[in-house]
Design a protein around this nucleic acid. Structure first.
Length: 487
RNA sequence: GGCCCCGUAGUGUAGUGGCCUAGCACGCGGCCCUCUCAAGGCUGUAACGGCGGUUCGAAUCCGCUCGGGGCUACCA
């Protein structure tokens, strides 16, 4: 058994929460729960230029929506607060000074213009190593000021030794080699730390034992390990997850893929448990004989890092649709009905719950549960039940496809139903079968089509007889009559 | 350009030298069921990027090659 792990997800509040945040959080949380540890949310807001108001709250809301609540976060607090990097600024500075004093870091006054020019030249000359050229290394401010490309406010850079260790062990991939780093900036001119410094200091101070992050960080890991060593701290374990992809195989992005926005799934009417299962599947394929549909508890019970995939998966929406259907069908009908109502309100399908709306949704949900892909599909399917008879819109295409005997069928149906003793699905079916299939010698498929169009306005609908029960006898007869008159 | 990660059907994958004439799921096609559409049942389709090794034997090991991705910021 493993020691209790502390894991963390560290989103940047730079817009709508990214689906990758939930993806990482799922694996973070799974490992924390598995080992009896804690899952922490830390907000990485050191990039002041890209901050977006409200984005942080959306992170908490969407993680809660997915049942991936943090044990510690800026929202709920915790023993290692503050959990927001912008509130930890004074925390980082002493370590920077310590590194400078020890000769592991140095000031750099190069202007961004000079840096850009240097990079361009390196590109043009197709030089092998493209890192910072160390112009400022060993110089005082005044010495450096004599040289071109000077900027008054310095940054602090790491002094990467030539023998930096490039290999490390990864929980998912085993032994991994990373590229040679350059003299990375760790403290920006505005006094904010870069990710590299902040992540190491915070992870250490917050006692994070297992760093779960995207594959794109593999190349930065040697820098982080160097900082741990210089600061005399114990390193965490690393788990680099495969990157989610767009259909064109590039790293998933909001520009190319609406599903890169975590909120998109909620807006589309996906169930959080289905999305959670889907995200799990992307990086944690079932072994032979195992099920794809699995709960979070089952996921946790079985969890092993070695089972995590190393290949970046492309989002397969068809699979998500299928999974969502599986979860919808597994929900108790009353709960599904409540979620449909909730979704209708949240999405704007309904401004408010119409009279009898909730009851109608409840009684109609059993009829449509197995016909739904998302919650968004529900209301359109039962709109005819929520519409007053005189406002029912009958689709002209549906009418056009009816046979020439439609009028006769409707008359016979009305006749059979007018004096029906009990208004139940079974009784309605029996009466209509007798009158149409038996009486008019029609095939069931053609016998019921005109009735369906009259009742629902469409060619395709939830089960007809059950729908008529919900609608009631008066409405049903009135609709049969209206279509008869309109033919 | 340099370094790193990855490469099984349309998609996600199982597979760690013989059990693989390559399994599963989604998708797609067919049939059954059936008041439409779904759901469900049965069934079909389709893949080891390429080339060389190692071996009695390779999807599995090695080399090269091709392809995709990532990093190469005072972004994370």
């Amino acid at each position: 058994m493993n020691a209790p792990a502390r894991t963390r997800v560290a989103p940047s509040p730079t817009g709508d929460p990214h689906v990758g945040t939930a993806y990482m959080a799922l694996f973070d949380k799974a490992w924390a729960v598995r080992t009896g540890g804690q899952f922490v949310v830390r907000i990485e807001d050191t990039d002041r230029n890209r901050l977006v108001a409200g984005s942080e709250q959306q992170v908490y809301d969407s993680l809660r929506w997915l049942s991936l609540e943090a044990d510690e976060s800026p929202e709920v607090g915790g023993p290692y607060a503050p959990y927001r990097q912008s509130e930890r600024l004074e925390t980082y500075r002493p370590y920077v000074d310590q590194l400078i004093e020890a000769g592991h870091a140095y000031y750099c006054w190069c202007s961004s213009e000079r840096l850009a020019q240097m990079r361009a030249e390196q590109q043009a000359s197709k030089q092998a190593d493209t890192g910072y050229d160390r112009l400022c290394l060993g110089l005082t401010r005044d010495e450096r000021a004599e040289l071109p490309g000077f900027s008054e406010t310095p940054v602090v850079r790491m002094l990467i030794p030539a023998d930096v260790e490039l290999s490390f062990n990864d929980l998912v991939r085993g032994e991994v080699r990373a590229p040679m780093p350059d003299d990375q900036v760790i403290l920006k001119a505005d006094g904010y730390p870069t990710y590299h410094l902040a992540v190491v200091v915070d992870d250490h101070l917050m006692q994070i034992t297992t760093v779960v992050r995207g594959e794109e960080w593999i190349s930065s890991t040697p820098k982080h390990r160097l900082l741990y060593r210089w600061l005399g701290w114990q390193e965490p374990e690393y788990a680099h997850m495969p990157l989610l992809r767009n259909p064109d195989k590039s790293k998933i992005s909001k520009r190319k893929n609406p599903a890169a926005r975590l909120l998109w799934f909620r807006e589309q009417g996906y169930l959080p448990e289905a999305l959670r299962n889907f995200l799990q599947l992307l990086a944690y394929p079932p072994a032979a004989g195992e099920q794809e549909v699995s709960s979070f508890d089952e996921f946790v019970a079985d969890f092993r890092w070695s089972k995590v995939s190393t290949v970046g998966p492309i989002f397969d929406m068809k699979k998500l649709d299928w999974l969502n259907g599986v979860y919808i069908r597994a929900l108790p009908c009353d709960e599904l009905a409540d979620r449909i109502v909730e979704f209708a309100l949240a999405s704007g399908q309904w401004a408010e719950v119409p009279p009898a709306g909730r009851e109608i949704v409840r009684s109609a949900t059993p009829l449509i549960a197995e016909r739904l892909v998302t919650l968004a599909d529900a209301l359109p399917k039962i709109g005819f039940l929520l519409t007053p008879d005189d406002q029912l819109v009958v689709n002209p295409d549906a009418v056009a496809k009816l046979g020439p005997d439609a009028g006769q069928v409707l008359d016979a149906a009305s006749g059979a139903l007018a004096d029906l003793g009990e208004w139940t699905a079974a009784a309605i079916q029996e009466a209509l079968r007798g009158a149409l299939v038996g009486g008019l010698a029609l095939k069931p498929k053609f016998a019921f089509a005109p009735v369906r169009v009259a009742i629902t306005g469409e060619q395709v609908s939830p089960p007809l007889f059950e729908s008529m029960v919900i609608l009631g006898r008066d409405s049903s007869l009135s609709r049969l009559t209206s279509l008869r008159a309109a033919l």
